[in-house]
Design a protein around this nucleic acid. Sequence first.
DNA 1: TTATAATTGAGACAGAATCTCAATATTAAA
DNA 2: TTTAATATTGAGATTCTGTCTCAATTATAA
Lengths: 146, 146
Amino acid sequence: MAKRLVDSLREAGYRLTAPRLAIIKVLEAETGHLSPAEVLEKGRAFYPALSRATVYRTLDLLTKLGLLRPIYLGEGNLCFIYPREGHHHLICSKCGMVVDFDECIAAPLGQALSERFGFRIESHLLEFYGLCENCQKDEQKQAGGD
Amino acid sequence: MAKRLVDSLREAGYRLTAPRLAIIKVLEAETGHLSPAEVLEKGRAFYPALSRATVYRTLDLLTKLGLLRPIYLGEGNLCFIYPREGHHHLICSKCGMVVDFDECIAAPLGQALSERFGFRIESHLLEFYGLCENCQKDEQKQAGGD
DNA sequence: TTATAATTGAGACAGAATCTCAATATTAAA
DNA sequence: TTTAATATTGAGATTCTGTCTCAATTATAA
């Protein structure tokens, strides 16, 4: 299971290099969301000469292989996640707070779509947008006082 | 229905300006996904002096009001969509092709999450990632010939 | 019509992402 | 184990994205 990224890279015919391994270690150690800048910074703990270009190239490559998922969590933050079982989000569209949750009910729909469009579906993402408890309260205060 | 964005802006106490109207026209005319750069370019057809800063400000504002949804479709493209009923995606992680579809089965789950986390859910996003038909074929060719 | 305050555009700025190319390292085959 | 072919890399230049400031403009309510 910790081998998934490495194995998939090799199976797809790509070389296994020290910079790529460093990036993969970072991705597998992190359970949440990582921006390219974070991957670069943490990756340098494993391979100090790691360059920004390589981080972007590797993130793109893993995404194209379906091993990583780009995701935009608002507030100018592009992140990548290494998808495990049902990793999904509840996002406050006002303050940007993110809550993770696990349940997912999308698998049967995925099956149907797969047949209709000829896609081979590898993963999915489910996100709910709304207002968190705090921002709802703020809203009420504003409505009353202002 | 074409009035939704304009009305919501006014109801929330924001002014209705020519630059904002131009941006809203662009959003409502487009059924797909728009990057800020595209909004700027197309918006200038309606209001030539439109500035980049205003595009970002307005996109942020509409997002904070829950009227727009930021979404990242891979390949470095942050986009915004004006959510209609169940506007969801099937994304090819290799070539980036996007297929839209409508069915959605997330509403009951949203209800449950709403109660558990105290969120007021306003919209949601469901995306499936995988390989489109063409990229699956390419993959087979490569496996065979190379 | 006017006063007020929200909103704007321009351009400076910071940071993110991309590109190029010579140098390096992985891999498969000898 | 050595070698040759070539995928991959880092550095830095470059371009693009998104943010910020501030004086000028404009929508709005009175």
